[in-house]
Every structure is written in C-alpha cells, then in structure tokens.
Amino acid sequence: MDIAQILINTLVRAAELSLLAIGLTMVFDILKFANFAHTDYAVLGALFAYVFNRILGLNLFLAIILAAFVTGWVGILIDQAIFKRLRKIGAKPVTLMITSMGTAIALRNLMRLIWTSHTKTYAIPLQKPLEILGARITPLQIGIIVVGLLSMIAFHLLLHRTTFGKALRAISDNSDLANACAIDSEKMIKRMWFLASAYGVIGGSMIAMEHLLYPRLGFDIIIPVFCATILGGIGNPYGAMLGALTLAFAENLILALDLAPLINLGGLFNVGSIQISTGYKPAISFMILIIVLLFKPTGILRKK
C-alpha cells in the first residue's frame, strides 16, 4: 500500500467533490430539497468553459470564471422558471426533488443534443508528474488542490463576513423569522442559486480538466457528490468538505486494503490475500451512503 500516493489522490478528488457538494448542501439547506440536477449544472458550465476555451480561444482560467458566471445565471433562470413556481403553490420538498430529476434528464440530453456525446478536452498539455515523498503529483493537481482550498476560504468569508452570508444563515435557521426581519428571501435565494451553480462549475471544470468532459458526466458523478454531502451533514458547508475528504479517502483506500492480516490472526491461518473485487468500486460510495443514512443520518458534522 502506497499511503503517500493514496493521500494525494484523496486530496485531489476531495477538492473536486467538495466544490460540488457545497452547492448541493446550500440548496438542500435553504430550499429543503435534494437537487438531482446539480451536477448537470456543473457539466453545463464545464461545457461552456470548453466553448470559451477551445472554440473562442480564451485563456482557460478566464473561460472557467466566465462559464461559472453564465451558469450562475442559468441556475437562477431554471429556479425562476421551475422551482419558484412550485414553491409558490406550496409543493412538498419531495415534489421539488422529483422535478429536479426531470430537469436533470432534460438538461443532460439537451447538452447531448448541442454538443454530441463525444468526449472533449481543454487545451492543456500532458503534465509531467513531480515526485513528492515517493508519490506523484502533477502541477495541475496541485493547482486543483489550491483552487479548492481558496474557494473554501472564500466561501467561509462570504458566509461570515458579508450581509448576504448572514441573511443566508438566517434563512437557513428560520425562514419565517428571517422574513419577519425584512430579509428579502427570494432575492437571497436567487443569489444562493448563483453561488451554488458557480461553485459547481468550478468543481465540474476541475473534474473535466483532470479527467474528461462529456454531457453524461453529471450522471456519472452524482452519487459521490450526494454521498459527500450527506456524509458531511446537510446544510453544513464544512461538513460537505469533510464528507468529500472522507469519501475520497475511502474510495482510494478500500481497493488497496488487504483484509487477510485480520483473518490470519498473526499467523494462525494463511488465506493469502483478501481484497475487494475492483468490480465493486462503484458500490463503495453507495454503501457508504446507505450506512451513513442508516446509522447517522445527520452526517458527521451537525448543523450549527
């Protein structure tokens, strides 16, 4: 087992996942529903960034910022067109969740209609890995970890140092009371959608940069993102980060684990090596999700 490499892989994956999980947890917290279309917003943004970068020839960094901005507005528009109507007629959170499932299917296939199913890559050359403590890491991966960290700090400051952040926390705690205090909830919700979608785009673009980009990507990453969110405790952005870290670590560790020493009992038996079949890798996040839901549905960090 190569612990250093596992830790590096974990950090990179956690940086990507937590940016997606933050947006999901915010929407879940304020509007009380699980937005199944969240990762598809992120992929939409990543595709916008692809257009700006590869077709318009914009610098990749600028392209992603611009795409985050545009997708932020898309998030607001979809909310105005769909979710706001449902809120107005007092639909149950469950109805909103099912609607988001429909939105996800429609959006994902709309992207396919526009961009086709072919895989896309940004204009980044192949990276030569650097060696740190026997493990390999590319400059891009270091960049991803740094951007991930900076985004979290920015989010923390936003939540605690701005009036928007305070209002958001107030709504989260008690929306009726917040209304009574003359906080314009709808306005705050708009800003929240913008922020959630934009953060998702940064996460989605980082996944696209490090791996691949294609319209179905949103569906392929939704379960790990949900898992990280719930694991961390819904409504708690720091929980989302911690959840992402835990999940990423589990994903990387479980396949490397050899259970044989446990069963051999210090030489009593010799069963060779017992490892989980790699075919079950996709089940890891499902299993963690179910176990967390069963035994600690509030997640690791309770909402403050």
């Binding site: 087992m1 190569d2 490499q5 596992i6 892989n9 994956r13 996944i207 791996h211 691949l212 179905r216 990507l217 392929d220 990453i221 994903e251 990387n252 479980i254 396949l255 490397a256 490892q275 079949s277 790699t278 075919g279 890798k281 996709p282």
Partner: peptide, 20 residues
C-alpha cells in the same frame, strides 16, 4: 487482475491496485 466499470472518470484506485 483488475476489472473496471465503464464510464467512470477516475481510475486511479484501480491503477493503484494494478501496480500494488
């Protein structure tokens, strides 16, 4: 002997296992 699921974006853990 690693078997992998199609349509994933991250095969690092599988590769780690392959070379362990």
């Amino acid at each position: 002997d690693v078997v992998y699921e199609l349509n994933k974006v991250d095969y690092k853990a599988e590769l780690q296992r392959l070379f362990a």
